[in-house]
């Protein structure tokens, strides 16, 4: 059974105090339930992730935490405060990098930061200094007087991250920060987020990229249809929901279905669990090399064999679908 945040955690005194705490959190849009009873806690300094497909309820949860979307039900505390009553105070301590960049295209790169800083009541001189430092940090110093519109997608995203940092937030909220970026831009963003983590900035991230979650997150929850279906560190999730290794077998033009029928029954001797896909057979096993060798002795022999470590993607697919029930 998926292990979720223990029931009754409210009676324990969290140590250290959680920055974000949600209990039975629900968000409804008319009849549609976007978030369906979510429990979670985020600790100071943690890099916390929401992993889920599009429409799983990640962004809705983020917006509630960001105090721009009132919860329909349940309890939510950010910095121990109530988002409904203390929205402006909470938001003054958050940095938000939304899914759409929502930059001000009528302003220059620098103006975007300085104008945004004003919303936090940051004095002009401080704002300007921070803006310059942040542009340096996200490698946009050379574009400081440029308009926003001609910037590339990666530059805009970096500028959005810089903007989210202008108030030196205690929590940085990142909603799919690298969606739509090319590999170079993604890696630059990851580097910067990692540096922020080293500085102790608490970060909350949503993503549907498994590698992103695996690289960045200390702890994450997997969301599906508005519910948290698993929670833990990437390593623990892999241990719990997948095997140590995965063997991928391909059979040239032979359909895996046919292969599976021919070596019927013996597949499961080689592994703990297997999955037959249209293009390959996956063997989930603790010892990939042994399974690969055993599979190679079969008839028909696979045309290609790949042994790899289990990833979050295996966990995710196992938990949310496209899978044979064991």
């Amino acid at each position: 059974m998926p292990h979720v945040v223990p029931v009754g955690y409210r009676h324990r005194v969290p140590k250290p105090a959680s920055l974000i705490e949600a209990h039975r959190l629900v968000k409804r849009f008319g009849d549609f339930v976007a978030v369906d009873g979510v429990d979670l806690q985020v600790q100071p300094g943690e890099f916390f992730g929401f992993l889920g497909a599009n429409g799983a309820g990640k962004s809705s949860t983020m917006r509630m935490i960001g105090c721009v979307s009132p919860p329909s039900e349940g309890v939510l505390r950010v910095f121990g405060l109530d988002p409904i009553k203390d929205g402006p105070v909470i938001r003054s301590r958050l940095g938000v990098c939304p899914q759409q960049d929502s930059l001000d295209e009528e302003l220059t790169v620098l103006e975007n930061l300085v104008v945004y800083a004003r919303y936090f009541g940051i004095p002009r001189r401080v704002a300007r200094q921070r803006a310059e430092e942040l542009l340096e940090f996200v490698q946009l110093s050379e574009r400081i007087t440029s308009k926003v519109e001609p910037l590339s997608g990666g530059m805009k995203r970096r500028l959005t991250i810089a903007r989210a940092l202008i108030n030196e937030p205690e929590i940085l909220m990142l909603d799919e920060p690298t969606t739509g970026l090319d590999p170079q831009a993604r890696h630059l963003v990851w580097e910067r987020l990692f540096q922020l983590k080293q500085r102790g900035v608490t970060q909350v991230l949503t993503t549907h990229y498994m590698d992103e979650a695996e690289q960045l997150c200390d702890r994450l929850v997997v969301m599906d249809h508005g519910k948290i279906i698993a929670e833990g560190s990437p390593r623990r999730l892999i241990e719990q929901y997948s095997t140590k290794e995965v063997v991928e077998l391909r059979f040239g033009n032979l359909p895996p279905e046919t292969v599976a029928r021919r070596i019927n029954g013996r597949i499961s001797e080689h592994c703990e669990r297997h999955e037959i896909l249209p293009d390959r057979i996956l063997l989930y096993t603790a010892d990939g090399d042994a399974a690969a060798e055993a599979a190679s002795r079969e008839h028909p022999a696979p045309s290609s064999v790949l042994v790899r470590r289990s990833t979050l993607e295996d966990v995710f697919l196992h938990l949310t679908g496209r899978t044979l029930v064991d």
């Binding site: 105070v89 936090f120 009541g121």
Partner: peptide, 14 residues
Amino acid sequence: YRKLFDATISTPVT
């Protein structure tokens, strides 16, 4: 059209 205030309300501005 430009969804400017989506970002604004993420700050203390109401």
